[in-house]
Amino acid sequence: MHKPNVTVAAIVTCQDKFLLVKERDKHTGDICYNQPAGHLEANETLAEAAHRELIEETGISLNASHLVGIYNLHAANGVHYMRFSFAFNSPELFEPSPQDDDILSANWFSLEQIKSLPLRSPLVLKCIEDYLAGKAYPLSLIYQ
C-alpha cells in the first residue's frame, strides 16, 4: 500500500524577506536551502508541526496566520511527499538560532536572492510564489 510522507513548511516573511534554512541534502550530500520544514509527528496538528519545525530549525517561535497551499511532489529521490505550507509573519528580522544539528544556518533572503540559491525542491520557490500571489486559506480549512 502506498503512503505519501506528510510534511509541513513554514513560509516566514518580514520586510519583503523570507527565512530559509541552509542544510545538506540527505540523499545527495549537496548544500541546499529550504523553508523550515519537516515531517508531521504523532499527536500533533499540521499547524503545530509547522510551528515546532520553525522553532527547531530557526529558534524562532511564531504562530501560523494561514495555510498557503497543499502540494503533491514525487521527488527525485523516489519519495512521494504531501506538503502543507503555512504562512508566518514576523514583526522583525529576528536573528535565527537553529536548534537542529542538521541545520547549518538560517538567514533572511529576498525573492531575487532565493531564485539564485540551490533549493531543496521546486516547492520552495513555488510556495513563496503562491504566498506572493495572495493564496491564503484559513487554518479552519483543516479539520483538527
Rank of each mutant, 00 (worst) to 15 (best):
residue 73 L to I: 08
residue 129 E to V: 05
residue 72 N to P: 03
residue 104 L to D: 15
residue 49 A to C: 09
residue 82 M to H: 15
residue 89 N to R: 09
residue 143 Y to Q: 12
residue 138 P to Q: 11
residue 104 L to C: 07
residue 96 P to K: 03
residue 43 N to P: 11
residue 82 M to S: 09
residue 24 R to V: 12
residue 106 A to K: 02
residue 129 E to G: 05
residue 109 F to S: 07
residue 2 H to Q: 14
residue 132 L to M: 10
residue 81 Y to A: 04
residue 130 D to Q: 07
residue 107 N to Y: 13
residue 106 A to P: 06
residue 36 P to K: 00
residue 51 H to D: 08
residue 92 E to V: 04
residue 75 A to E: 15
residue 38 G to Y: 01
residue 25 D to C: 13
residue 137 Y to V: 06
residue 15 Q to C: 07
residue 32 C to T: 14
residue 68 V to M: 02
residue 7 T to V: 10
residue 88 F to E: 00
residue 98 P to H: 02
residue 26 K to C: 14
residue 48 E to C: 01
residue 3 K to G: 12
residue 38 G to V: 03
residue 67 L to D: 01
residue 41 E to Y: 10
residue 56 E to Q: 07
residue 65 S to E: 12
residue 113 Q to V: 04
residue 33 Y to S: 02
residue 131 Y to F: 08
residue 10 A to H: 00
residue 81 Y to P: 01
residue 2 H to C: 09
residue 16 D to K: 10
residue 143 Y to V: 05
residue 107 N to W: 09
residue 133 A to V: 03
residue 87 A to F: 04
residue 95 E to S: 11
residue 9 A to V: 00
residue 87 A to E: 09
residue 41 E to A: 06
residue 39 H to A: 10
residue 83 R to P: 10
residue 127 C to N: 08
residue 102 D to C: 03
residue 14 C to N: 13
residue 97 S to D: 04
residue 68 V to E: 09
residue 50 A to E: 01
residue 59 G to C: 00
residue 84 F to V: 02
residue 108 W to Y: 09
residue 51 H to T: 13
residue 4 P to N: 12
residue 74 H to A: 10
residue 12 V to R: 01
residue 41 E to W: 08
residue 136 A to W: 08
residue 107 N to R: 15
residue 58 T to E: 00
residue 100 D to C: 02
residue 39 H to L: 07
residue 62 L to D: 00
residue 134 G to D: 05
residue 113 Q to E: 15
residue 81 Y to W: 13
residue 113 Q to F: 06
residue 111 L to K: 15
residue 45 T to I: 08
residue 24 R to D: 11
residue 17 K to E: 12
residue 62 L to Q: 00
residue 37 A to T: 06
residue 18 F to R: 02
residue 79 V to D: 14
residue 26 K to M: 15
residue 40 L to W: 03
residue 93 L to G: 08
residue 139 L to V: 05
residue 128 I to E: 01
residue 29 G to E: 10
residue 95 E to M: 08
residue 125 L to T: 04
residue 72 N to L: 05
